[in-house]
Amino acid sequence: MSLSEKYPKEVKRLLSKYPPEYKRSAVMPLLYLAQREEGYVTKAAMKDIAGLLEITETEVASIVGFYTLYHDEKAGKYRMQVCADLPCALRGADQFLESLCGNLGIKVGETTADGLVTIESVMCLAACDKAPMFQMQGPDGIEYHENMTVDRTMELIEALKKSGEAK
C-alpha cells in the first residue's frame, strides 16, 4: 500500500507545511513516515515518494544516502545509537559501548540474534552532559536515554523484548 493510502492525513499534513510549488521539501518527513514500516526505506517506498513529489527515484535515493538517519537496509527493530563522540568519550562513552557490546555478545554494527537491537556508534547527539547516552531509533521514532549504565541498558532491552513478545 502506498503512503498516501496508508497515512492519508499525515501525508496531507506534511505536504501542507510547504508552499505547494515546493512540495519537494516534504521528502524528509515522508521518508521518516516510510521508514516506520520496515525500519528502512524500501525501493518501493522511494518510488512512491518520488511519485508523490514529482521527482525521480534517483533524487529520493540520493537523499536517503546523504542522511544517516535514513537506512536502505534492514537492521534490528531498534537501532541503539550510542554517542561515542569527543565530549561523551571524555565521560566514559567508549568503555560503556565496549561493555555493552560484551554483554550482548555482538560488535558495533551488529544485531542481536533475535533481531531486536542493532548497536551503532554515532556522532554527538547534543546530550554531552548526560553521558553515557544513546538514542533508540525504532518504529515509533527516536527516543533519548541519558546518564545510562550498562545494567539499566540491559534492563531496557529486556523490557523491549518482553513488550515485543506480549504483542
Partner: peptide, 17 residues
C-alpha cells in the same frame, strides 16, 4: 534527474535508480 550522488563525504558516489 536520473543520476545523482549517493552517500556523502569521501563515500560520495554516482548512482542511478
Amino acid at each position: 534527474s536520473v543520476i545523482g550522488f549517493d552517500q556523502r563525504g569521501r563515500y560520495t558516489q554516482i548512482v542511478t535508480f
